[in-house]
Structures are given as C-alpha cells and as structure tokens.
Write a protein that binds this DNA or RNA. Structure first.
Lengths: 354, 354
DNA sequence: AAGCTTTATGTAATCGATTACATGCAACTT
DNA sequence: AAGTTGCATGTAATCGATTACATAAAGCTT
C-alpha cells in the first residue's frame, strides 16, 4: 500500500522533504546548531551560520510545522470566527487581519458559522485541540458559554479578541466602532433634512451590534426632538433577503415613513429593490440610508448614503491586539475606531409639500 | 517567565489538556489501545472500548493534532487558494467546499491572493512545508511554474484540484462550468432580442476564464450571423471598479452598442452605475448582461440578466474530488456543471426604431 | 597561572500521538 | 495433546523539531 507507487507518482514529486538532520549533516554541524541558526542567529558563529544557510538553500529545507508545534506548543495559527463569510462586510476585515498576522508570522484559519450557531462548537474544538494559538471572534459571544453570565471563566484557555461585536462581560480586548454614536449620527442626519418619520430596520434580535445601533437610533430621535414610534421598527437580520422583506412590509403600509434607516447596506439595497418594484422612487418618495459602506453601496442605484466603517483598520487593530497578547505584551482592553457619515444619493431633504 | 503566571490566568484555564496517556491510565489500558479504540474500534474488545470511551468523556480528551500529524504525516487540512476573497463570487463556493471537507473530517485554510500574485509563493510554502494534505486552486495556475509549459512536473507533491479556472496542461482534476458555452448562450440571447452591436467587457488578460468566455462571445456572434468588432471589446478585470471604467469608456463613445455583455456581475453593476450617472437608462437605452449571478444581481436596479453558476455545487464537487484523491480513490479528470441563463430586467428587446 | 566567565557547539530528552512487532491466551484443527 | 490460527493487548520505536544541560575552548580577572 505504498501511496506514492499507488498514485503512480513515484520518482516525480515523491522526493522526501529535507529534514533538519539533512541540513545538519550537509553543514557539518548538529541539529541544535541548525535550529539555533534559524531561531537565534546571534547565538551561532558567523561561519557556522553561513554553512547552515547554504545547506538550507541547497536542500530547500523548511521546518516541519507539526514537529515544531509539538515541541514548542505553538502553532503560529490564529482562528477567526465570523457569522457569515458570504456577507461582504467581512472580507475586507479579513484582509486587514490576514496581512497583520502574516507580518507577525502567523497563519489564519477561517471559521465560518454560516448562520448556524451549532458550528461554533466545531470551531471551539479547534482551540481546545490546540490547533491555534489564539482567536479573533466576530460573532458576538465566547465559545461554550451561550452568553455572558457573571464572569464565567473562559474555558478556552487561549488568548481571544472580540472584533466588531463586543462581548459583554468578557475580559478580553474589544475592537469596535462606536455603533451607538454612528447610528445616532445617521438618525440626526435624516432628521436634519426634515424627516420626522424615520423607520428603522433592525439587525437580529439579541445581537449586540443591533442593541447599540438601536440605542443610537433612539438617541438620534431624541436629539432631534422626535418621539419614538415602535411601529417604525422593522425586524431584519442584515441580509439582502431581510431587506427585501422589510421593503414589502413598508410598501404594504397605508402611511409610510419618509426615511428608512437600515442597519446594514445589504438590507438597504434589498429594501430599495422592493420599493422600486412597487413603483416608489428613492430618494424622491422615500429616503434610504445604510450602514457599513460595503463596495456595492457606492454603485447602487441610487448610490447609498451610509456609515463608513474602517474595515481594514478594524481587522488590523484586532490582529495587532491578538499578536500582542500572544507575545505576552499588554494591549488596551477597548479600541474604538472612528466611523464616517458618507453622503450619497439615496437620502434627500424632505420636500415640505409632501 | 511562566506564561500562565505572567498573564495572571493561573488556576483558570491553564489546566493542561488531557493526553492519551491520561486516558490510558484512567481506563487501565495502554496508549495503543486508546489509539486503536478511536481509529479502529473493531479491533478492540467491547469492554476495553467502553472503558476508554468513558475515560475520554471524563477527561475531555482530544487528540493533539500536531502529534498526530507528525507521526502519521497527515494534516487533515486542505488549502484553498483564491484570487480575491472580497469578490462575492467566491463565498458560496467556499461554503460548498467547507461543508464537504468538514463531513470528510478535513479542515480548510484559505489562501487569499488579494490580487497580488507574489502571495502565491507564501501559500505554496504551506504545501511544501506539509501544513496541508491537498489544495484546491481557484486562481488558474499551479504553484511555482508560472504557466503550463509542456508537462512540467508539479513540484508540490500533494494532490491538487483546479476549480473554476481550468489549468491548461496540468494533470489534475478540473471542476468547472462550460464558460464558452455559457458566454455563447448569453451572446445569442442578446442577439435574439435584436441586438446587432453587442459590446463585451472582458476579464483580466491571459486569464483562462476570460479566454473561454471570449471564445464563447465570438461563437455566439457567429451563430447569430454577426461579425466581430474589436472596438466593442472593453478591457476589465471582474471588479466593480473596472466595470465603472468600462462604463466611462462606453459613455465617451460617439456611437454606442445597444447591448453590453459583462463577464462578471460586479462589472455589470459598476457599469450600470456609470451609465445612470451619464443619464442613460438600462435597459431602455442600452441592455446590460452579467455573469455569475451573485446575490446582488437579483436586487440590482434594474435586476441583472446573467448566467447562473451553481457555486455551492462547484465547491462541493471540487472538495469531493480532492477528498477522493486524498483517500487514494480515483476521480474523474474533468467535471462540468451546468449553468443557467437567468433573465431579469437589465436586458430588453431592441426597439426597431433606435 | 589558577579560577572564573563567556561563547559556541554538541548530546540527548522531550513534545503526544501512531503503529510495527511481540506476547499471551483462547479456540480450533487433526 | 501438540500445533496452528486469530484476537486483544502491550512495548517501544518513530515522526522532526526544540531546548535543557553538558562540554570544550577562548578570553578575563587578579
């Protein structure tokens, strides 16, 4: 049952990878010296180092990660857990994470929950099994424990960082934007254009982001001297489909709000779709605002007024914090990056006549 | 320099993970029996197995992947290399891959080239270092060798599968759609609606997908009795931005085609954006077709006529093929999945008057 | 010059699993 | 009853690195 023979590849790529022993023999030093030449070059004489490097180049030696991990108990791998990879909001965040981790010598494993929380257990096992040195969590809670609960100990035992969705009660660094302030800002922007009836399309119930943004929406209403009307809150879950559904909800109403604040661009785009199909015009008949500033926001028709999140920077900040933790350095418990109100064409001043 | 003490976590999560020895001791068997109870249960007596299982449950034992890999030379990890994670086209493919790999007991590492081919070397090192058992390549060529070149041996030495972008001359399974036929189909569809001047927004030069689709475009023209006009080919690279640029190109022209076939939905959406900004109406003034059928295609304004690719199924098929390879089973060299022409609102019949 | 430090290197234990080989015992054959 | 076969299990080698400890040589101190 020789694999190489069986697959008919013998003699091709089946040359065994070089081991540290091969390098040591070629350089006429011990394996310890080879290892040191790579990890702590200053502790090896210049000539020995040169011979080792030459031997490495000649053999094409690459340290075996499994052996290295087994001995040093370090995987140089980080797990990134996110709720939905298909959500374009995350891709640029991942970029930021990946590039920062890469520079620090870490690889990245992506754990896509794909909307099914059961999968979380699967990825929690990754950490438990020691497959990764640390994890960045974008999905709003810790492994194992369903939710907060007075200082429950994190049974994971590896450094964690929460990104975007702050985890209440967890004693780990949190990297986020000020969702509440941003939502308030957008609500006030709409109000400042004369809108007095501003609907709100929410995120998933119980979601921390949603909580914050909802509070911001209410803050904004209050600051503008508008009263809160529960009938203007339409449930959503950040997906295009829920935006479409919210649009249908809106279209079916006898009296409609003049502006709609969707807490994700996906929902805003889905919602606009429904409005168009119903013959309504944006922003003439109704203004629509989004949140996130994904790539498609700028090219939507009409171009979407939204809140810009520094996605790449968020990823970088989270990765930087995690690497600090992994290297035993301290890191701030809470990092907040600034958002920006991006004014495009989907929101217009309310015509006094309507 | 005790890490646990330093980070102040001692006594919390710093309980050492259970090893196979701990389980063996508790179950009063040897480590070999524990290992066998997990890998080949039928070779262990029922009672021993029961004791082992109980001990595993009690200790929460999870085999150390590094140790397992070191000994068995299997990582149970697969690398997926793709050109651009931010391209929404890939996310559902990844889903299909991930779910299939997961069922087969494999994990997935994502290698995002992020538009910079240099990164390929980085991920090639993953395979060389034995971090993964196999790889799925979505970026159109093999590692190391820049391009084809008469039967160059794959120096990687691990099973590979090409997905979406067939790799010419490579002796590995290819999973794809019939890009040529699909492009031809769309071109004929446009022609059948009376369009005689059909522009083509291309993918990146040299890209295999692009090659195929371009051939399909020409097939379609020919089938419709239309002659090919090089002036109607506008360069693109599948991104929104290049679609925007293609739109500007179009707008600037004195005489415009009546239909534009964009070889990605992203480009189609970007292009429509530019047309709107220039005061043109889709599909009244000009018809626009896409390719891929990403999520946003259905909610674009107007909804995009495009080619639907079975993305999840493509991912599943690729993963299935790779797993077969990894397990020494044969797998077909070429798998082609069907596409579908999705007719929405961005393409209209040409008004004879114009 | 004896003793101490520093520097460079080698030897071998170690990480935690898998698995080839050995062993003991029961069941079966003739 | 002796020999054969097969099953369940244990012993120990092995994967390929890192690193604690040992050692040797060179440089310093007084």
């Amino acid at each position: 049952m020789d694999e190489a023979a069986q697959s008919g590849r013998r003699g091709r790529a089946s040359v065994r990878a070089a081991r540290i022993q091969d390098v040591a023999k070629l350089a006429e030093v011990s394996t310890a010296t080879v290892s040191r030449a790579l990890a702590t070059p200053e502790r090896v004489s210049a000539e020995a180092r040169a011979r080792v490097m030459e031997a490495i180049a000649k053999t094409g030696y690459v340290p075996n990660p499994a052996a290295r991990t087994l001995r040093s108990q370090k995987t140089y791998m980080v797990l990134v857990v996110l709720p939905d990879l298909a959500n374009t909001f995350f891709s640029k965040i991942l970029r930021g994470i990946e590039e920062t981790l890469f520079e620090a010598g870490y690889g990245m494993i992506i754990g896509d929950l794909d909307g099914s929380p059961e999968k979380e257990a699967h990825f929690a096992a990754y950490t438990a099994a020691g497959r990764v040195d640390g994890a960045i969590l974008l999905h709003g809670h810790l492994f194992g424990q369903s939710r907060g609960g007075e200082g429950a100990p994190d049974r994971i035992g590896i450094p964690l960082v929460a990104l975007c969705e702050a985890i209440p009660g967890a004693d780990i660094p949190q990297i986020e934007i000020d969702n509440r302030a941003a939502a308030s800002r957008m609500t006030r922007h709409l109000a400042s254009l004369g809108h007095r009836s501003i609907a709100y399309v929410s995120g998933p119930a119980g979601n921390i982001l949603e909580l914050e943004r909802f509070l911001g929406y209410r803050d904004g209403l209050e600051a503008a001297g508008l009263s809160f009307d529960p009938a203007l809150v339409i449930p959503g879950d950040y997906t295009i489909e829920s935006g479409v559904a919210a649009g249908q909800n809106l279209v079916a109403r006898a009296s409609r709000p003049t502006a709609v604040f969707c807490t994700s661009d996906e929902m805003a785009i889905g919602l606009m779709r429904t409005l168009f199909s119903a013959g309504l015009k944006v922003p003439d008949d109704i203004s629509v605002a989004g949140f996130d500033d994904i790539e498609f926001a700028a090219v939507a028709e009409p171009a979407l007024t939204t809140i810009h999140q520094p996605r790449r920077e968020l990823g970088q900040a989270a990765a930087t914090a995690l690497v600090a933790l992994l290297q035993g350095r301290p890191t701030p418990k809470r990092i907040r990056l600034d958002t920006e109100l991006v004014i495009r064409d989907s929101v217009a001043a309310l015509c006094p006549m309507s």
